[in-house]
Design a protein around this nucleic acid. Sequence first.
DNA 1: CGACTCCTTGACAGCGTTCAACAGTAGTGG
DNA 2: CCACTACTGTTGAACGCTGTCAAGGAGTCG
Lengths: 219, 219
Amino acid sequence: MLVRSGENAQPRLRERDALTGQNVFCTEFTYRRGSEIFGEAEPAEYLYQVCTGVVRSYKLLSDGRRQINAFYLPGDVFGVESGKTHRFTTEAIVETRVQIMTYGTLFEAYTDSGMPVINNVLKLVTKNLQHAESHMRLVGRKTSLEKVAAFLVEMDRRLTSSGVMILPMSRRDIADYLGLKVETVSRALSILKGAGVLDFVGQAQRQIVLLNGLMKLDS
Amino acid sequence: MLVRSGENAQPRLRERDALTGQNVFCTEFTYRRGSEIFGEAEPAEYLYQVCTGVVRSYKLLSDGRRQINAFYLPGDVFGVESGKTHRFTTEAIVETRVQIMTYGTLFEAYTDSGMPVINNVLKLVTKNLQHAESHMRLVGRKTSLEKVAAFLVEMDRRLTSSGVMILPMSRRDIADYLGLKVETVSRALSILKGAGVLDFVGQAQRQIVLLNGLMKLDS
DNA sequence: CGACTCCTTGACAGCGTTCAACAGTAGTGG
DNA sequence: CCACTACTGTTGAACGCTGTCAAGGAGTCG
């Protein structure tokens, strides 16, 4: 039985699991905004899939800086490790409901169905690899404007419904994701707004609509 | 039968292949310095393992800049794709001998031995993922000095024998790997030499010895 | 030996960080 | 429900680092 500190568990039977393609018992958890899901170097016991909410994955460097690796949105699977420990810390950015499966369940599914499971794991790791490679080029990109623009395009693609994008993460999160400072992100957004390629909806600084061509940047 | 333009093939039976753990027929090729091994978006037909020499893997961005993704040294396997095409261009930096195996052979090995093969592929992709994540932090790191120092530590770990490191790649390669300009790399090396943490051996600018603590930088 | 690339160094400009101040927002408790 | 407080976000000014442009020397390959 799963035990996690202070979170409410809601065991459920999911019809088809994303990885195993089978009927498996899963457990749902809800994490409060800002709470840690798992920490770096903790033993990797579970796989997670976001139901609602958003998760950030990061490492703290020795100088105190934080490098955010990825944002996980509804549908995304995270916590997959080939070693025995997690390599990143993950936190819920907003109140987040996740679906949890034990590695044990995964391995049982493997012995049952074989190839498909491990193949899905491979696809997942490959997807992460491609994102990491793409993000590496983004972080190495020249200007802060390009970084922020690329970030907006990525987020727009992943979480826009009805044309307006509601960013769940703070400017600091964006900055730590792009390797910039908060002020630079803020400035870039102001410049992009001034250039007419985006606009803020209402007074909220996190509701953004991309207007005309924020052209697709290379890979 | 393998056919590659203008390169001399040397079919050999390797005793145990790195991926399959089996006896398989492999083919060896020698690539001249600067020649392309495979190009981005080409169909992925073969796996490669470096015997001698060094390989660079990169993408050309739309603005003409080149982002080097990884350097492959003797023993490293590259060309592994989960899709049908290569996502990077690879070139021999110096005269390089590689061992080639077809994906077909890989799949035969899978049907024969099952789990171990795909498990090795998973390990390989995971290793690439970890390198990409680590490199992402490196590229996002603050100063050019830290980038160059981290690069030297990485290379020192991977290719030093007898304390002196012979860099096979040019300053331009290093710059494109770290997201810097050639002049900045050169300046950083001069500064590090002035600070007494490294020294050039003889007159050659590519033979470097790390003296005292270039402390291990985080992950 | 000559032509080429590679590497280094200098001067300068541009961009992002740093420091600082302020406004807007949200969360808390009276 | 409002006031207080802490956090979040924006903007300005000065500084420092890296890119840019330019020149020259060193090394390498034909």
